[in-house]
Write a protein that binds this DNA or RNA. Structure first.
Lengths: 342, 342
DNA sequence: TATTTTTGTTCAATCGATTGAACAAATATA
DNA sequence: TATATTTGTTCAATCGATTGAACAAAAATA
């Protein structure tokens, strides 16, 4: 049962009376090898169930054909969909991916980067953890000569290819819609300002309010980790405040779900008394009662484009231009903010 | 900025006037190397920012120190928690893990196995996809001499180490509890019978009913993929039937959530008119209104034990005994089945 | 002093595949 | 026929680290 002897090019060579190098060249379609030999070698390879030794060829070629993907967490539809699409594109191009998650922790992220560099991946495609402010480890990736592409959460200072959506514009879509629904007092459950995407959403929120002639109240911009509990806690806080908002724009769907729970528990009418909008178009937003309006980030496109950016770079190592691909956000209007529908 | 030259043992040797082999031995604490040399080598290694080349040592030693983990899907608390704990234990022992997901698809699972074998992982820890009935690919892992440990979803015929819970007993806990709540007509939204764990849950369900003197109705055992929609569809079906059950035991939490949604939409009183119990203790079960009773599978323990089983085996390659570790399930009683509380 | 043992290091082969150079044979050209 | 070109294969070095054997020097024993 146990057939542990893996065959090598040496074995094939022995069978056919050739040298290992001839076999190697035949398998790699070297022009100087005759078609007759190539066919014979390839048949023998199948006969012997030959599998190339990845380690040795990677060592020799200085190329592993492995790409590391680092995401904050995996149980989010957005991130797992991005990874799925990265994988799809890279597999077609002979690469395999290694997926790791930082769990939003800087220390874990550093450890994952070290592991990936150790196994000598050809590149890393990453979205940064919430905690990450020190970019030293990302510099390290570049200084080792490993390709780096960031998506969604990425900082401009790193000067690497980036794929994401226009967060500033997303906020405009959200606020304009809420204003059209006649909302006047719009609060924002925000992500942390030190992360670029959340900073942009806050900036867009403020500018869009001013554009519509509404006043920006600083105490209605509340930063958090955007976990379920954060959404619950902050929504309760908003309800308890002397002046209640009549709409809440949450920078993440999970926190929006928490907010929704609190609203339901307090028998607040949605969207009449309070409109609610989330961010990311997680699948559950269409399943809740009422369903939650949200912003579609085009996770499939992001994954595809990030993978292509990596391929582009690995195939043109001395390319100097940095690509920043910014996709158009799309507002998905559901029950939680649509006063006309009800 | 770009400091691409990675240093090797050769560089260290050159600096100290030694040979590469002396350096290698010094770094690996070979007994025949003097302490003086060891210290000098290790200092030079730090000075030169030396990182061992994983590929070359893996090639030479025939050992990658990489373990592949295959799970059906990653956006489930149970699986991601198992992976987290596998990683924790293995990292401490000098291994790194590569996590992949099958998305419950047999074809994807085969592809992932091929990838993992290609990068020559030292072992694979896996939970099988729902679709998988053909065990050929798992045989392949073993025949290549790669260690294999299964958890949760695993088949006995494969004859490999396994970690899971006692599914038969779980059903007894569930049914006994429902009976104690005075439920008489208990339906079972089941997983597919061809998968051992679901078969066991069904067997336990039947036996427990009989033990309590209740009649087993075959049309109240409905197999499915246990997705959210399956739960919704089947619950609706049960509500529309001439005789309604007064309790439903669902073999998965996601499907239980679907069932709960339908019950709420139909204004059925829970647990008075209908009690509901899920399986896996996914975090959301405690967040719903009402919260869902469920079975705790000890994901942390499973991950830890699976990793330890792998280590045990890799350290004793000629060990013949197969370990089957079966953990005790724990019933978590929440609002959806506790008639006394309300 | 001669011989054995211990210690510290170097030598050389190895893991498996790749690749430019070298070489011989076959074919084409002058 | 002599020379140039093309074709098919082998040779040998290489990627970087590891490891048993060999060797020389130092220390211990007879």
């Amino acid at each position: 049962m146990e057939n542990k002897k893996k065959s090598t090019i040496k074995d094939i060579a022995a069978v056919l009376g050739l040298t290992p190098s001839a076999v190697s060249k035949a398998l790699n379609d070297h022009p100087r090898i005759s078609d007759k030999t190539k066919i014979a070698v390839k048949e023998a390879a199948i006969q012997l169930d030959y599998q190339p030794n990845y380690l040795s060829s990677a060592l020799r070629k200085g190329k592993s054909n492995l790409v590391g993907v680092i995401i904050p967490r995996v149980n989010s539809h957005f991130f797992s969909s991005v990874v799925e699409n990265i994988e799809k594109v890279l597999n077609l191009n002979g690469y395999n991916i290694i997926m790791t998650q930082s769990n939003e922790l800087y220390a874990k992220e550093c450890q994952e980067i070290d592991t990936l560099l150790k196994i000598q991946v050809d590149g890393i495609i990453a979205s940064m953890a919430n905690e990450t402010t020190d970019l030293e480890y990302y510099q390290k990736i570049k200084s080792k000569g490993t390709e780096l592409v960031l998506f969604d959460r990425g900082e401009e200072e790193l000067n690497v290819d980036y794929v994401g959506i226009d967060d500033y514009k997303s906020s405009h879509l959200v606020i304009d819609h809420l204003v059209s629904q006649n909302c006047k007092r719009i609060a924002h459950i925000a992500g942390f300002k030190h992360i670029r995407i959340y900073k942009e959403r806050i900036r867009g929120y403020k500018d869009a309010l001013e554009k519509s002639g509404l006043v920006v109240q600083e105490n209605w911009i509340i930063e958090s980790n955007l976990r379920l509990d954060d959404g619950r806690r902050i929504m309760q806080q908003l309800l308890d405040a002397p002046e209640r908002p009549d709409a809440v724009y949450v920078a993440g769907d999970i926190a929006a779900l928490g907010a929704l729970q609190v609203l339901l528990e307090n028998n607040i009418k949605i969207p009449e008394e309070m409109a609610l909008i989330g961010f990311s178009d997680e699948p559950f937003t269409s399943l809740t009662q009422p369903s939650i309006s949200t912003v579609n980030q085009h996770s499939d496109q992001i994954g595809k484009l990030a993978a292509e950016a990596f391929l582009e770079r690995i195939n043109n190592p001395n390319k100097k231009i940095i690509n920043r691909i910014i996709l158009e956000p799309e507002l998905i209007i559901r029950q939680s903010s649509n006063r006309n529908l009800k």
